[in-house]
Design a protein around this nucleic acid. Structure first.
Lengths: 137, 137
DNA sequence: TAAAAATACTCCATAGGTATTTTAT
DNA sequence: ATAAAATACCTATGGAGTATTTTTA
């Protein structure tokens, strides 16, 4: 289980195909294919329905994407711990209900504690709805 | 940033020293030392106060341990998704006629295929009627 | 002075790339 | 017929081990 695999999985969910995700994360399609295969092998179950092209997330896949988002988000947060320069302005982000009820509150508290001058706005919605909002700016 | 580094970090926090953590995660002390060094290099700040022996978590280190716990916990959760037993019991849900004729049949088929032990009951009705049923339990 | 961590080096596992084949639309 | 994923093969990066040196309690 590697963070890079989770980032890839999230990218696939957000961009709709292995190839598009490859482009998004700056790797080749075959690398993405292998990452997912290895992840599936390690977990012991499939994440995609391969009878479709591009492969479609199955229900366990969808579930896993949510957890992957948690992990990737936390990593991003961690990566920003170094820059002490205080953030200002407004941050808007979306979260699926599972995340909202899960890690978001605590993450929000941490974020607020570290950046008192940052105004935070949270949108709730399902993955595809959020993706739409992002596309629309 | 690697999951293994976060596991190691948590182990150090829990066991009190690099050497003890090495033992806990089944690696050598030098491997632990390198993992932490690489993590610190990537993040751009130190996690430990080296003037103590064993090194002591500094305040950023303590903060990071919390995030590391989030990540490690989520990974453990993910690893257990495979052994998730099938849903049992009864699921009752309502659908408006349009949905009943549209996406419901296929969704139902999928759901039945994935959870053979789940009994599914469907109520038909208009939105406000269904809302009433939900309120009434 | 005795622990624990850091360093130097070596080896090997594996992630990713290129090229190709397979598959679903 | 075409676009996308899977597969095969190769290379190089870096993670972990052993042995040793440095450090602080």
């Amino acid at each position: 289980m590697e963070i890079r695999q989770f980032k890839t999985l999230v990218a696939i969910a957000d961009f709709g195909s292995f190839a598009a995700a490859a482009d998004a994360v700056g790797l080749t399609q075959s690398a993405i294919s292998l990452q997912i295969k290895n992840l599936e092998d390690e977990l012991g179950f499939e994440l995609f329905d391969r009878r479709h092209r591009p492969p479609m997330l199955n229900n366990k896949g969808v579930l896993l994407v949510e957890h992957a988002r948690t992990i990737v988000t936390t990593c991003d947060l961690v990566a920003r711990l170094g820059s002490n320069d205080d953030l200002k302005g407004t941050l808007t982000f979306g979260a699926v209900p599972t995340a909202l009820a899960g890690i978001v509150p605590e993450a929000l508290a941490t974020l607020r504690a570290q950046h008192p001058n940052l105004h935070i706005s949270v949108k709730s919605g399902l993955s595809f709805e959020l993706a739409g909002l992002v596309r629309g700016g």
